[in-house]
Design a protein around this nucleic acid. Structure first.
Lengths: 224, 224
DNA sequence: TCACTTGTTTGACCGGTGTCAACAACCCTT
DNA sequence: AAGGGTTGTTGACACCGGTCAAACAAGTGA
């Protein structure tokens, strides 16, 4: 971990992010004044479950996993944040300890926004409050989607879903945006189960070579 | 369904609810001006998945289940709202169709708040925005908890958890706040699985008679 | 390039949970 | 009190998916 300056690409990511996109430049600058940028290696821990977290995080590049651990030591991912996503607001607004650990799932650059500042802005600036509300609605829906998928779909169906939703409608192939490892975690699967799901889907015309996924029969996938 | 006046008990529930408790009387009155109260029987549908929902709902008494249905017709509950809980904000703020259906899980009285009014208040009144933010954080955490439980715990462990968190620390028994049916749904279980979990827990000193649960060995439950 | 580490796949096995069917318990109405 | 519907329980069974172990592939660094 290391304190850095924003590169122009990172700044662009931040400004385009769901949360900041709707805010005026001046507000963005204001938030950034009390923010710090850090780089993390894969597996670096941003914060741990049960710690106090006073800041809000935003992924400038890379990928962050939110995971909870059970008392037996096993752990389960509850969210996965790609570039542009913001997280860890809940602990702050609820004045609670973190309910999960945040771990870099690959080399990442993260900006850490001052929680107090953000909270104060949310309380005085309608735009910020509005952005926060929409952000939280979005996040809530994400989690609810995950929960519903877990409860309604088998492993293979979840993988089929993922493929369909990540392969551009007009294309027949795409690259996985992250390691299979990580994908398994997001889908609530052991890596072995993910692998098996892929091999089941081969019968429906899904070819997997490394991170490259080819779909030869979209309707077959949708039927799953 | 039927339009009603607020009884004084219902009014009290509303004012004590997580969302309204922090707001001044005048704001509450303002919201109520464009609200309507309805009574529902068990299984009555408040709204259906994919419908447009312009209002926000708050449970004055009773219980509401939020459930999604998979394409094969099976359905999974994604949330359960007891007295005092508010829901269906997401559809409004995200301007999306409902991602789940809302069904009364027992005879219930629900107040329906005008969505546009609430949205307008959220945009102009800091207190309302603040209350909404905390509400959404709370809801997000609830869903995340459910997801984590599903992924980390077995059926029996989830039931043990539920019992522990609902039995007052100083007591040795309590009544289930709703039908086992509904509990099974909330825990993501088939009713049969819930039943089996209870009978497993009998070995750890849990006695179940109808809705009455007795705990004779708390530590044993915690060990599960 | 080779060795080494890390990630992925496959097989074998087994425990957990959904499903179906039958039955028991309970509630409500008459 | 009887009867009918609903709700909860139990057993049998299948299957999904977790775990362990081993083989294999890919990436990394010297």
């Amino acid at each position: 971990m290391n304190t850095l300056q924003l590169t122009s690409r990172e700044r662009a990511t931040l400004i385009r992010s769901r949360f900041f996109a709707r805010l005026p430049q001046s507000t963005v600058e204001d938030v950034l004044k009390s923010a710090s940028v850090s780089a993390y290696e894969e597996r670096d821990v941003l914060f741990r479950q049960d710690e106090n977290v006073d800041d809000v995080f935003l992924v400038l590049s890379g990928l962050v996993r939110l995971c909870r651990m059970g008392k037996d030591g096993r752990e389960a991912d509850v969210a996965l944040f790609p570039e542009g996503e913001m997280f860890a607001e809940t602990a702050m607004f609820l004045k609670q300890r973190a309910t999960a650990s945040a771990v870099a799932a690959e080399r990442s650059v993260i900006v850490r926004l001052n929680g107090g500042k953000l909270q104060q802005l949310a309380a005085t600036d309608h735009e910020v409050a509005q952005a926060l509300i929409e952000h939280l609605c979005y996040r809530g829906k994400m989690t609810e989607d995950l929960l519903a998928e877990d409860r309604l779909l088998t492993a293979t169906q979840r993988v089929a879903n993922f493929i369909l939703s990540h392969c551009p409608k007009d294309s027949t192939s795409f690259r996985l945006p992250f390691q299979k490892n990580v994908l398994a975690g997001k889908l609530g699967l052991a890596p072995e189960a993910l692998s098996r799901a892929f091999s089941t889907l081969r019968q429906s015309g899904v070819m997997v070579r490394g991170r490259l996924i080819e779909i030869h029969d979209r309707p077959a996938l949708e039927r799953f």
